[in-house]
Each structure stands twice: as C-alpha cells, then as structure tokens.
Simulated assay, not measured.
Amino acid sequence: MALRELAESGKLTPVIDRTYPLAEASEAVRYLEVEHARGKVVVTV
C-alpha cells in the first residue's frame, strides 16, 4: 500500500535508462544483458 501511495502522490518516479521502439526489441534485450542498465529499459509499441 505505501508504494502505491507514493506513486499516486508523485513522490516516486521510475528511472528510465533507455527507450526502444518495438522493432528494436532485440537491441533492448542486448543492452540489458551486456550494458547492465542503470534504470528501466522501455520498449514502446
């Protein structure tokens, strides 16, 4: 519950390392495996 309340209040924000289009999903996975992402890697549809 506490985590949800923080997110809803805007006090918790995700850290997005990189964003990839769906066509580059394999590159996103490679980045996760090789580069060790420091935040979330997002694949957009």
Rank of each mutant, 00 (worst) to 15 (best):
residue 8 E to Y: 09
residue 11 K to V: 12
residue 10 G to T: 04
residue 23 A to W: 08
residue 6 L to P: 01
residue 24 E to M: 05
residue 20 Y to N: 03
residue 35 E to Q: 15
residue 37 A to F: 02
residue 34 V to I: 15
residue 8 E to L: 14
residue 16 I to F: 03
residue 26 S to A: 11
residue 18 R to D: 11
residue 40 K to I: 04
residue 38 R to G: 13
residue 39 G to M: 00
residue 8 E to C: 08
residue 11 K to N: 11
residue 43 V to Y: 00
residue 18 R to S: 11
residue 15 V to F: 13
residue 32 L to I: 08
residue 38 R to V: 15
residue 11 K to I: 08
residue 32 L to A: 06
residue 23 A to R: 14
residue 44 T to M: 08
residue 14 P to K: 05
residue 40 K to D: 07
residue 15 V to S: 11
residue 13 T to S: 14
residue 43 V to P: 00
residue 6 L to F: 05
residue 27 E to R: 13
residue 45 V to N: 05
residue 19 T to Y: 07
residue 38 R to K: 14
residue 25 A to Y: 00
residue 27 E to V: 05
residue 14 P to F: 03
residue 35 E to W: 06
residue 45 V to C: 09
residue 12 L to P: 00
residue 9 S to Y: 07
residue 17 D to N: 10
residue 45 V to W: 10
residue 1 M to C: 06
residue 44 T to R: 15
residue 44 T to A: 04
residue 12 L to Y: 08
residue 7 A to E: 12
residue 30 R to L: 07
residue 9 S to W: 05
residue 27 E to T: 10
residue 25 A to G: 01
residue 19 T to A: 12
residue 19 T to R: 14
residue 20 Y to V: 02
residue 2 A to P: 05
residue 26 S to I: 10
residue 39 G to H: 04
residue 3 L to N: 06
residue 39 G to P: 02
residue 17 D to Q: 03
residue 17 D to W: 06
residue 26 S to L: 14
residue 19 T to C: 12
residue 21 P to H: 09
residue 34 V to E: 15
residue 35 E to F: 06
residue 7 A to P: 00
residue 8 E to S: 10
residue 39 G to A: 05
residue 14 P to L: 11
residue 18 R to K: 15
residue 30 R to Q: 09
residue 29 V to M: 13
residue 45 V to L: 12
residue 5 E to W: 07
residue 8 E to R: 11
residue 41 V to K: 02
residue 11 K to E: 12
residue 43 V to E: 01
residue 32 L to Y: 04
residue 25 A to S: 10
residue 30 R to M: 13
residue 11 K to P: 02
residue 24 E to H: 07
residue 28 A to R: 01
residue 38 R to Y: 07
residue 43 V to F: 02
residue 29 V to Q: 05
residue 14 P to D: 03
residue 32 L to Q: 06
residue 11 K to M: 14
residue 44 T to I: 09
residue 29 V to D: 00
residue 21 P to L: 05
residue 19 T to N: 11
residue 5 E to F: 04
residue 27 E to G: 03
residue 16 I to S: 00
residue 30 R to G: 07
residue 2 A to H: 13
residue 7 A to W: 05
residue 33 E to V: 07
residue 24 E to D: 15
residue 41 V to N: 00
residue 45 V to G: 12
residue 26 S to E: 06
residue 22 L to C: 03
residue 31 Y to T: 10
residue 31 Y to V: 04
residue 37 A to V: 04
